[in-house]
């Protein structure tokens, strides 16, 4: 038995090394399945919870055009959550169970959404910075080893591309506007810069799962690699906007052809992960409340479907 298991695992790894996709009914190591369920559902939860900080501004958007764009964008996040839950369901996880884990605090979601959105500039910052960071994380996942996850990510990335642009456009409009608007944009960047850098996760040296995940190709770059890429990408964009990145240690490094930058406040990072962010409680509470208040609706639809089925069956018998 043991030799057979070994062979299976080796065959599995060989397929991954050959960049072949794993599909739902294929044999896979338990740990691969568990890790994927954790990663995909965490990603789905992030989309779901991520609707809240922006949803918060739909009713206050400053023009009809912005209102439409923001609503469409937050709706996309619901869609992305749904694609990802679907992908996780192909691994045998039920959406109900995943939601229960979110609601009980057992499952995590991206900590960035535990920061409050305080001004209209935050809609710019979330789109430009947060979605920008998310895209860096997500694009490589379009080639991840698990087929349904990769396909969901292709769809997500295709839709996500407008999100970052609309965020940048908000920032650009603010920066080209009145002094008050420019200040609003700078204040937003000041608050969002560091939390965004935290989105890539702990330093590689503190990220014990990275090696296995890279081997399975469910992660394709390390946290630090992506963080560096992000800084290199965003600093010129901030300069274009005429905004100052709030990092006194930020400096171009000619030798590495990239920026050197200051260290993230890891104490803050771990605190927010542990539930002590400004909005951890509100975010979770909002999700739990929506789910609980929706219970009677979901139940009614099922009850009605059942009644209708029985009536149709009775009609068929009569006929």
């Amino acid at each position: 038995m043991e030799t057979l298991e070994l062979t299976q695992e080796e065959q599995f790894q060989a397929r991954i090394d050959a960049d072949m996709r794993i599909e739902p009914k294929d044999w896979m190591p338990d740990a691969y399945r568990k890790t994927l369920i954790r990663q995909i559902s965490q990603h789905a939860h992030s989309e779901l919870v991520g609707m809240l900080p922006e949803g918060n501004w739909i009713t206050r958007a400053p023009s009809l055009k912005r209102k439409s764009i923001l609503l469409a964008k937050v709706q996309d996040e619901a869609g992305h959550g749904l694609y990802l839950y679907s992908a996780a369901e192909t691994l045998g996880a039920s959406r109900d169970q995943m939601l229960a884990d979110l609601h009980s605090g057992k499952a995590k979601y991206s900590s960035i959404f535990n920061y409050p959105t305080l001004s209209w500039a935050d809609m710019g910052c979330v789109g430009w910075l947060v979605d920008g960071a998310a895209i860096l994380n997500q694009v490589p996942l379009c080639r991840t080893s698990y087929g349904p996850y990769a396909r969901a990510m292709v769809r997500v990335c295709k839709e996500e591309s407008f999100h970052q642009r609309q965020g940048f456009e908000i920032m650009q409009t603010l920066c080209e506007g009145s002094p008050e608007q420019k200040a609003m944009a700078q204040e937003g960047l000041n608050r969002w810069w560091w939390p965004t850098l935290m989105m890539f996760g702990p330093k590689d040296s503190e990220s014990p799962n990275t090696e296995q995940s890279m081997k399975w190709r469910i992660k394709r770059f390390t946290n630090d690699e992506l963080r560096q890429k992000f800084v290199d990408m965003m600093v010129p964009q901030a300069e274009f906007l005429g905004l100052t990145v709030p990092d006194p240690n930020l400096k171009w490094n000619e030798a590495k052809q990239g920026y050197d930058f200051g260290d993230v406040d890891w104490e803050e990072f771990w605190n927010v992960v542990k539930g002590n962010g400004m909005c951890n409680q509100e975010r979770l509470q909002a999700r739990v409340q929506a789910h609980e208040e929706g219970a009677w609706v979901r139940e009614a639809a099922l009850a009605h479907a059942e009644k209708r089925k029985q009536r149709e069956a009775a009609k068929a018998v009569a006929a």
Partner: peptide, 12 residues
Amino acid sequence: HVGSLHAADAEM
């Protein structure tokens, strides 16, 4: 095939 979703009945 594009994915899956939840619904109470076929119409929904």
